[in-house]
Amino acid sequence: MANRAYNFNAGPAALPLEVLQKAQEQFVEFDNSGMSLMEMSHRGAIYEKVHFEAEALLRELLAIPDGYKVLFIQGGASTQFAMIPMNLLPKGSTAAYVATGSWATKAIQEAKLFGETSIAASSEADSYKRIPSIVELAYSPDVAYLHITSNETIEGTQWSEFPDTGEVTLIGDMSSDILCRPIDVSKFGVIYAGAQKNLGPSGVTIVIIREDLIVKPAASVPTMMRYDTHAKADSLYNTPPTFAIYMMNEVLKWVKANGGAAGMEARNREKAGFIYDVIDNSNGFYRGFAEKDSRSLMNVTFTLANEELEKQFVKESEAQGFVGLKGHRSVGGLRASIYNAVPPESVRALASFMKEFHSRNA
């Protein structure tokens, strides 16, 4: 479509055009039912088919082993910041966290409301420009769990490999990079992800949880904040975000048709390379924020010589149809979020704009 923006928003983010067009076709009437999917009961057979198809596709694309439950929960990753300690941090135990940036910090702050926490490693002293190496991790073998944030959207850093924690439960917030590459789910006790960056629109959060961790928590945990509530009811205890799950199902079909997780990784490495190459070959005009070995495939963060030049970059880019390139308000600078659904053509266009802007303003 000629009037589609170059969408680099950090989330909610770009969706595949094919998925949007299919949703448009099915919006008023779904599956010859005489009504929209948004109008029908979540207890009916038509919706349940969509619901369980989405779960099956997620299991297939992430190669989720037996012994894990896939849950669809509302409230975003921010609600999981609380649900994790409420369900998995018993009284008298300590939870270990790796402090890698803004989102990890929020998860830590929330966990402190429910129990004891410790910091297994931190890159705060380096302004969160890097992911701590696995050898830096230091935590007691009797911690309740070790929590990591796989990709920091604000700082533009990403774990390149995950630690093998043995008997310690590893928990991963993968909200901004789930399905951007293949992962070994068996390393984790819990993986959670808000859908609005790589899986679909906002409204549904994915929780992949090992079944032995679905235990009855303390009596004070509200019913809707318990994993066993959602697991027993196949995520249908209450009305789920039906349209968001439908959209996620269509995005998962798109991912499968485009090579699955491995296909997404090849696509994402190519896209990230377009922009990082411009940054690295700009003789310091563009300055990457993240250290090279911690760079994200999803969020490319960079700065210019001064704030005025950055404002000019944003203004001129917006005039040419680029959206979402201003950095997060907490750190400033510039950011291009290039999630799975961002087309390579959009990223190539951005790289060309960056080169042209450099030539005029060096």
Rank of each mutant, 00 (worst) to 15 (best):
R130C: 11
E55I: 14
A10I: 13
S93D: 07
T79H: 11
F114Q: 01
T229M: 07
I183Y: 08
N3L: 13
E48D: 07
E55S: 09
S122D: 08
I64R: 06
M224G: 06
L252Y: 10
G263S: 00
R348C: 08
M83Y: 05
A336R: 06
P141G: 09
N340H: 09
M354F: 10
R43K: 13
H358C: 04
M264W: 03
R287H: 06
M225L: 15
P217V: 07
P132Y: 08
F357W: 03
F313N: 01
P217E: 01
G327T: 08
P182V: 11
R360A: 05
G284H: 05
K187S: 06
T165W: 01
T100I: 06
K256A: 02
R181G: 10
D234W: 06
N281S: 15
P132E: 08
P16H: 00
H230K: 12
D31L: 00
A82D: 13
A233Q: 15
V314E: 09
K112I: 08
S186F: 03
H147C: 10
W254C: 01
L297A: 07
E167W: 04
V28C: 10
A319Y: 01
P241F: 09
H230A: 12
D31C: 04
K22C: 12
S352A: 13
E167F: 09
L309A: 02
S359Y: 10
F114H: 12
K197E: 08
A104T: 13
D66W: 04
G189D: 01
A336N: 12
N198D: 07
M298D: 02
V251I: 04
V185N: 08
M247V: 07
S118W: 00
K326V: 13
M40V: 08
I208W: 00
E356V: 09
F353L: 03
A13G: 15
R210P: 12
L304Q: 11
V135E: 13
K187D: 04
E152N: 04
A341V: 07
Q74P: 02
Q74A: 11
S346G: 01
Y246V: 01
S317D: 09
S127E: 12
M354I: 01
K311D: 15
S175V: 01
